[in-house]
Simulated scan of single mutants.
Amino acid sequence: MQELDRLALTFHRFAELECPGMSSLYESLCHSLAEEQDLLALAANARSGQPAPNLFMAAVHWLLTKGAQHTVTEYYPDISPEMTTHGDPYPIFRSFCLEHGDEIVDLISTRLVQTNVVRRCAVLLPAFAVAMGRDAGQPLSLVEIGASAGLNLLWDRYSYTYSDAQRWGDPDHPVQLSSIIRGDLRPPLPDSIPKVVFRVGLDLSPVDISDPDAVDWLRALVWPERVDEAQMLEDALEMAKDDPPRLLAGDALELLPEVLESIPLDSTLCLYHSNTLN
């Protein structure tokens, strides 16, 4: 199988498996792009080891949010909230990509798919409740693997609402996480806000939230229809900027021994990773 054929299959699979219910725009665009040799040739420049569809779509999104003028913005609800455009967006999308091909190649060949989905904390919270229950009264030490910008290290500061009417945290907090519970079981929630005495995130390429360029790329990775997720990211970034979590760059297997040695002995270690919680 030729490289572009494999890449076409990657875009089709992305559209079929990841986009439904999340982004009808990306679902449509990726299916069409998979049949288009010119754009596949651009996408083939994606950084090795990175998911080409995510990178490509984020690169276009980045350029549009940076002010690139083109009618394709009419299909992006986060850029044109009152969009009235209907029909197939691909011809206009294709023209934009060909006009900005060099910029797209530069972005996808140098950037990473490095998201920070704050909503994952709603699934993490019950796990921390279990940890707190096992060592009642002990403070927590948090170590996150693949922390990105570290926003999920700050889970204890957010507000949570579950569909069974359970609430946790400050109801007036700007970061509000809501979740629908399916099935008969109910997640345990902490009885109180825990004392966290240690928190650090490990990542091969952590996102520095004091770097405007890095934050703008983080925003570009949020899919256009996910307006609520984009706002949640903004709220979490705003909250974190005055007291950002500590992040260490490097391989977790190499960093962990020294990190674990520095954790207070009278605390409960919570070592976690959230990438599978999409």
Results as ranks from 00 to 15, higher is better:
residue 70 H to N: 14
residue 71 T to Q: 08
residue 71 T to I: 01
residue 71 T to S: 06
residue 72 V to S: 01
residue 72 V to D: 01
residue 73 T to G: 03
residue 73 T to H: 08
residue 74 E to V: 00
residue 74 E to I: 00
residue 74 E to R: 09
residue 74 E to Q: 10
residue 75 Y to M: 03
residue 75 Y to G: 00
residue 76 Y to R: 02
residue 76 Y to G: 01
residue 76 Y to S: 02
residue 76 Y to L: 08
residue 77 P to I: 12
residue 77 P to V: 09
residue 78 D to V: 03
residue 78 D to N: 15
residue 78 D to L: 08
residue 80 S to L: 01
residue 81 P to G: 07
residue 81 P to S: 09
residue 82 E to C: 00
residue 82 E to K: 00
residue 85 T to V: 08
residue 85 T to M: 13
residue 85 T to G: 00
residue 86 H to M: 05
residue 86 H to I: 04
residue 86 H to Q: 11
residue 86 H to L: 05
residue 87 G to L: 12
residue 87 G to R: 13
residue 87 G to T: 10
residue 88 D to Y: 05
residue 89 P to S: 11
residue 89 P to T: 11
residue 90 Y to G: 00
residue 90 Y to A: 02
residue 91 P to V: 02
residue 91 P to R: 04
residue 91 P to C: 06
residue 91 P to I: 04
residue 92 I to P: 00
residue 92 I to A: 14
residue 92 I to H: 11
residue 92 I to R: 10
residue 93 F to M: 10
residue 93 F to T: 03
residue 94 R to L: 09
residue 94 R to V: 06
residue 95 S to C: 04
residue 96 F to S: 00
residue 96 F to K: 00
residue 97 C to Y: 12
residue 97 C to G: 09
residue 97 C to V: 09
residue 98 L to K: 02
residue 98 L to F: 13
residue 98 L to A: 02
residue 98 L to V: 09
residue 99 E to S: 15
residue 100 H to N: 15
residue 100 H to Y: 15
residue 101 G to V: 05
residue 101 G to M: 06
residue 101 G to Y: 12
residue 102 D to P: 03
residue 103 E to Q: 15
residue 104 I to P: 00
residue 106 D to Q: 15
residue 107 L to A: 15
residue 107 L to K: 13
residue 107 L to N: 07
residue 108 I to K: 14
residue 109 S to Y: 11
residue 109 S to W: 14
residue 109 S to T: 13
residue 110 T to K: 12
residue 111 R to D: 08
residue 111 R to G: 02
residue 112 L to I: 02
residue 112 L to E: 04
residue 112 L to P: 01
residue 112 L to V: 04
residue 113 V to S: 13
residue 113 V to I: 10
residue 114 Q to T: 07
residue 114 Q to E: 12
residue 115 T to A: 04
residue 115 T to D: 08
residue 115 T to R: 00
residue 116 N to Q: 10
residue 116 N to G: 07
residue 116 N to W: 07
residue 117 V to A: 10
residue 118 V to H: 13
residue 118 V to Q: 06
residue 119 R to L: 12
residue 119 R to Q: 13
residue 120 R to V: 02
residue 120 R to T: 01
residue 121 C to V: 02
residue 121 C to A: 15
residue 121 C to Y: 06
residue 122 A to N: 03
residue 122 A to D: 07
residue 123 V to I: 10
residue 123 V to Y: 10
residue 123 V to C: 04
residue 123 V to Q: 14
residue 124 L to G: 05
residue 126 P to D: 07
residue 127 A to P: 00
residue 128 F to Y: 10
residue 129 A to R: 01
residue 129 A to C: 07
residue 130 V to L: 14
residue 132 M to P: 01
residue 132 M to T: 00
residue 132 M to C: 01
residue 135 D to R: 03
residue 136 A to H: 12
residue 137 G to F: 13
residue 139 P to N: 09
residue 139 P to F: 11
residue 140 L to F: 10
residue 140 L to T: 03
residue 140 L to D: 06
residue 141 S to N: 04
residue 141 S to F: 11
residue 141 S to I: 05
residue 141 S to C: 05
residue 141 S to H: 09
